[in-house]
Nucleic acid binder design. Sequence first.
DNA 1: CGATTGACGTACG
DNA 2: TCGTACGCCAATC
Length: 115
Amino acid sequence: MTPTKTPPDFFDMVYQVVRLIPKGRVTSYGAIAKYLGAASSSRLVGYAMNGAHSQKPKVPAHRVVNRQGLLTGKHHFASPNLMQQLLEKEGIKIKNDQIVHFEKYFWDPQKELAL
DNA sequence: CGATTGACGTACG
DNA sequence: TCGTACGCCAATC
């Protein structure tokens, strides 16, 4: 219905990219936004994650952190420590809610996907 | 329908 | 280096 409806393709794109994040890697909202061509709309990426858990294929939102490598969205998970647990489970070290060697685990879609 | 908020990032002082 | 302001777009009140 509502053929004039404007589907949030941007949100869907975000989910797709997040699913492409390899295990043991992390990325930032801005990186995804830039990859989608919306570097200025980095907030939309975070907002998209808001409905990530609502998506059918579960979106590994725990692999998405802010530019500082800080687990800013951990409070949005089922449990605030769940995000850290998942990351640590993948071999990522976290200190004070911040990813250690974040730059080392950083996964840039623009670079990895090399479009 | 208007105003506010938000899982960010960059710019400016 | 740190703090504040702005932008961007959608969802919510």
